[in-house]
Design a protein around this nucleic acid. Structure first.
Lengths: 161, 161
DNA sequence: TGCTAATAATTAGCATACAAATCATTTAAG
DNA sequence: CTTAAATGATTTGTATGCTAATTATTAGCA
């Protein structure tokens, strides 16, 4: 393989690696907090925005509503969240944290900190710059061909507060 | 927000963006080739390394063997790959492409990585270098951090595969 | 008013993905 | 040589994640 293609292949391999590792670590979160990464992510989002509609939660999490429903099913089964059908618009279901859910958020605040952030913070300013710049290029070239999402609202990604 | 945190937030946001776009692209590939992204990835890997053992394939793909078994089941059901139990070590199963599988690889060579590769190829050598380097750092810090599974991933980053 | 379109949540069906347990086989220890 | 440990693939069970279809409700309009 020519060095040019080697370089491309490396980029793609590394992207996959990042995906895998990020995925893998989210599974490890389960062991220390008792719930899975996505569930924890949902809980955290709900704790910040509650009461929140299912569709808004899905939007907040960049996930499909159908996926969120499944996560909510499991959280509700553990009595961490509550579902309430709105009286003004009976199509709408609003989600809240139960006491148990709030307790979980209180008890595991550091969970939100995250491995990636911790790792990035330890890096030198220069390396962080390189990572940031490289990703920016990547987003640029990908963004050109990005397909407008259908069901989910604009996945316009907001910077965390 | 201080510039330092701004930088971190940007990195994480861009990662999310990349995840999403690549994810969508993988679905596009599915529609044009008839098989899913992971299946295509497996086919491509097999075509490069065949005959290959199941565990080696899993390693190549950064996936758990159990996951690969499922993918192989579906590929075998479509008669795209063949499983052969080794005669020298009867625990080992080696995977090969069927004629149909080879034909698919011939017919859809670029589908697997099309969007990414096409975009990357258009970039200047300089920018490509920056992307490659940045990802390498990223993989490094993720790899290093993987050892102590104490802290966990920021759920915000745990975007779908 | 009454019919149709749009919206919100859910369900059903499929494909990843992993950990843990299992089965068969091979290797190593005594 | 016999048994215990290790290895390779698979099975089982749980959790994502998506699309498409369904149900219930609301909004829009003739």
């Amino acid at each position: 393989m020519e060095p040019e293609n080697r370089e491309l292949a490396d980029i793609i391999d590394n992207l996959r690696r990042v995906f895998q590792v990020v995925n893998e670590h989210s599974k490890k979160a389960e062991k220390s907090s008792g719930i899975t990464g996505p569930q924890l992510w949902a809980i955290k989002t709900i704790s910040e925005k509650a009461p929140i509609r299912v569709s808004d939660l899905a939007h907040q999490m960049y996930l499909h509503p159908a996926t969120v429903v499944g996560i909510l099913d499991r959280l509700e089964a553990r009595e961490l969240v509550t579902r309430t059908r709105s009286s003004t618009d009976r199509r709408v279901v609003t989600i809240d944290l139960s006491e148990k859910g709030k307790e979980l958020v209180r008890r595991a605040p550091e969970v939100a900190q995250g491995l990636l952030v911790a790792g990035l913070e330890k890096l030198s300013r220069e390396k962080r710059k390189v990572i940031g710049e490289g990703l920016r290029y990547l987003v640029d070239i990908l963004g050109v061909q990005e397909i407008p999402p259908k069901l989910m609202r604009s996945p316009e990604i907001n910077t965390p507060e």
